[in-house]
Design a protein around this nucleic acid. Structure first.
Lengths: 152, 152
DNA sequence: ATCTCTGCAAACCGTTTGCAATTAT
DNA sequence: ATAATTGCAAACGGTTTGCAGAGAT
């Protein structure tokens, strides 16, 4: 909750810095986004937003998520689908994902060693890293399925 | 050329195994795909195929690339675009990519250490790795741009 | 002869945008 | 008051498919 309040405050700051307005729709969408499940699609976010304010339209969710993404409060993923999913960002924090093809679980991971080797790889070839995308598609090991635990 | 002939032969085998036919269009498309630049889009492949046989349609390229992909002779990538790009596969060989945001170069890399850490990461969490996607977006270091070297 | 393949044009699906009415500042 | 915002519906862009005629075996 506290973290969510911080995110809300950041959104507010972002908006006023750009001369934009904090509408009831944006409040609802941000709330749904920051307090709800991670990695939701626009349609899922819309559905939940509509529970709180049923007049909200898809385009508003779309535009609000774009604001959040451009403002660095959300990241957009496309996990092998043709559909975007959004995840709250805390600081400049970055992590990658294991995506289970059996149960749909999405588990975060971070490995400094991997990032370090990436940097080296790039430098050796005359590049510097701007960003990366690392998705590992997995299957549950026998007897270890965490079905229904799609939370990160 | 030799490698290309091998690929052609594999395609042939793939087709006859499924009771499918080797048409002139499929021959042209496979040729363009295996001998041309890597990481081409359907439109680019179509354009080149049309040079050799101008009646070829987009849908045929699309369907042929699907055959090749499903048969394991091609892999499909989406490097941050909304458009698929295709790359010839040699054996079960796998590699990942550095994509330059400045000059468009796509450079392959492979790092057993990274793969190993991925496997460990997954195993520790009760999963086994099925596949992965690792794309590193980079920028040319000052004075080291290989513009026009988008190969490989 | 039979069953696959092709090219066209239309359907699809998620995303993106133009616009007239509405709302926050 | 004024400029931003909303919801709708239509446009987009790449992908996917139905179908009648052409082609490979």
């Amino acid at each position: 909750m506290t973290s969510t309040q911080t995110q809300l405050a950041r959104f507010r700051a972002l908006l006023s810095k750009e001369g934009l307005k904090l509408t009831s729709q944006r409040k609802v969408i941000a709330d749904v986004f920051f307090t709800g499940a991670k990695h939701q699609s626009l349609l899922e976010l819309l559905e939940q937003a509509k529970v709180k304010q049923k007049s909200i339209g898809y385009a508003t969710v779309y535009r609000t998520m774009r604001l959040l993404t451009e403002g660095g409060l959300a990241v957009e993923h496309k996990f092998g689908e043709n559909q975007a999913r959004y995840e709250p960002v805390h600081d400049g924090e970055h992590h990658d994902h294991l995506i289970c093809l059996d149960c749909g679980a999405i588990v975060e991971f971070e490995d400094p060693m991997i990032e370090q080797r990436q940097d080296r790889m790039a430098a050796d070839r005359g590049f510097e890293v701007v960003s990366h995308r690392h998705e590992v598609y997995v299957r549950c090991l026998p007897g270890q399925c965490r079905r229904d635990a799609a939370a990160s």
